[in-house]
Write a protein that binds this DNA or RNA. Sequence first.
DNA 1: TTTTTACAGGAACCCGTTTTCCCGTTTCGT
DNA 2: ACGAAACGGGAAAACGGGTTCCTGTAAAAA
Lengths: 341, 341
Amino acid sequence: MAVTIRDVAALAGVSPSTVSRTCKNNPAISEETKEKVRIAMATLGYEPNFQASSLATQNSRTIGVVLPVSERFQNVDSFFLETIRGINKYCNGHQYTTTLITGDTDEEALQVIKSMVRSGQTESFILLYSKQKDPITDYLYNEGLLFALIGKAYQSANQTIYVDTDNIQAGQDATEYLYQLGHRRIGFIGYERTLLFSSDRKYGWQLAHFSHDLPLDPSLFIEIKGTSKDMPDELYRLLNLPDRPTAFVVTDDFLGVSLERACRQCGLTVPDDVSILSFNNSLFAQMATPPLTSIDVNAAGLGTEAARQIINHLENPNLAATKIIVPHILVEQESCGKAES
Amino acid sequence: MAVTIRDVAALAGVSPSTVSRTCKNNPAISEETKEKVRIAMATLGYEPNFQASSLATQNSRTIGVVLPVSERFQNVDSFFLETIRGINKYCNGHQYTTTLITGDTDEEALQVIKSMVRSGQTESFILLYSKQKDPITDYLYNEGLLFALIGKAYQSANQTIYVDTDNIQAGQDATEYLYQLGHRRIGFIGYERTLLFSSDRKYGWQLAHFSHDLPLDPSLFIEIKGTSKDMPDELYRLLNLPDRPTAFVVTDDFLGVSLERACRQCGLTVPDDVSILSFNNSLFAQMATPPLTSIDVNAAGLGTEAARQIINHLENPNLAATKIIVPHILVEQESCGKAES
DNA sequence: TTTTTACAGGAACCCGTTTTCCCGTTTCGT
DNA sequence: ACGAAACGGGAAAACGGGTTCCTGTAAAAA
């Protein structure tokens, strides 16, 4: 059925090895012969058999893309899809493919990964998340397999490839933006410390305070625990204070929308009473009332870079682990206003 | 490096072919020998090489999962991810894998698919969408490749495997639910006719009217054109009418949120003045103020069924094309209230 | 002219499984 | 007791390409 290297060879009047060499642009073949072969390939629509080639070269040209298991990440579904699109974009241009790995539990996903590795289906991975004490990361690291994290590495950062936003800088940029609008009491809403992207953004928020010699009231930080969809009581207490914050940096759009709702419940309007600046610039941000000014972390760019790194390392074996920072950009919408002085 | 069939054969003291037969549980091998082989496999942690096996059997055990290109579908990112999780869940349990196909344009995605087919990487596909005049669907159909649609087939429905919600029924159920709450003027907001899921839901809405002998005022239907994020003027006119609808069925959560916003702008509260019932039960529905009562179409279930169909057809070649309906369920939240009489 | 060098391209083997074909035992029927 | 069928399992040929080795030829050097 399918057209093989032998068909091409027959049509071009050469041997299969010559066709193979032509594909890899081997200098041992004369340009003339190569051209003959190329024409034969084109007329037959020849494409080398994927499995045969993988088998012979011991390189599957397939990258495993691992989705996080935890519900904690479901707020950012569109982030993943965009990242995947970014990964595929690069792979499409380099004759690589991706295989998506998911599971209901870490154990399930890990089993799938182990099986893929043992069966030679994939030998490199991109993890769309970064998580402490993740059995998958540990396994990949201990087996010496090639992988890239999207997010900041928790451990062995020097030996790990990772692609990330500069979240500290982003947190600082966000806070600075609000500062420039005249805000002096700026709150931060984020997740627990173990989620690095969130704690880095918080750190950036703190840095911005230091750089302007602003006092940093601990009650200005609201931590969202677990997967609860409701804002904690402290937030409501904070909003009802006479000297409530006039602005908030929140660590994702989902929380931004929740905050908008909390404000509405407290009779506060956005942005007149409270300004909100969030992260990800997802559809949530655009759909909110009012739409949220948000920092776009360029999910597709993160994906593309991760794919580039993996393919680069696959093709140049003993490269040092690299760390890539993808620039973010602040997208202005209507949720931030000048502070009344 | 990796453990091969020969290693297992050597340890078990049999020939490679015996090991292979044991894996496939060939009755020609005595239970006794099989047990010996199984022990050898277990102690070595043997897993058959994926590419070699694909090469020999001419079956890649890989399903291509195609994401839609169009921006039109970006409202439902989480739907796709859930569907993919459903597909993978079934595949994980049947030693199949998925490879994700995306592209910025139809052309790009089609090229990727063609290349995968020609290189023998995949010979079956699941399309996460259903679209009229889709070059990808046409290509797969014309080449006689195995594929399943998620959504209703536009053409050659009898020869196409598809997995869908009963959208007509769902539209009817939604409308009926509102009718039972006492609503008599019920609007419908949906997309243009070419998007079958939307027009089917609309048809269900019409059927519910017929079954209760309710008049069907054409102005009760609002069509959203293109990818605009704003509600059209007709909606605002409709909402300001003295006999405005007291309830709406809207074709997805995204539009549900938009409608909530429009209501707020018109000084109407949900659900006291206007009840809203939407589709998908995504995070949007849960995050809305108030949370939207929504019909959950069970995205993961759609994915699982699609995977089951494909694998079933792969393993039983000349099966007739099947059409699978996955049940939906109405999830009550706070956006629907009794009509004041 | 002879020897060297260089390089084009063919044959054979390898990658790891599956599968066909075939051979040696045993068992059953007559 | 002999032949035939049944059974268990081994050897080897695919599957489609990559790679190495090796030969044959032409051009360059001596």
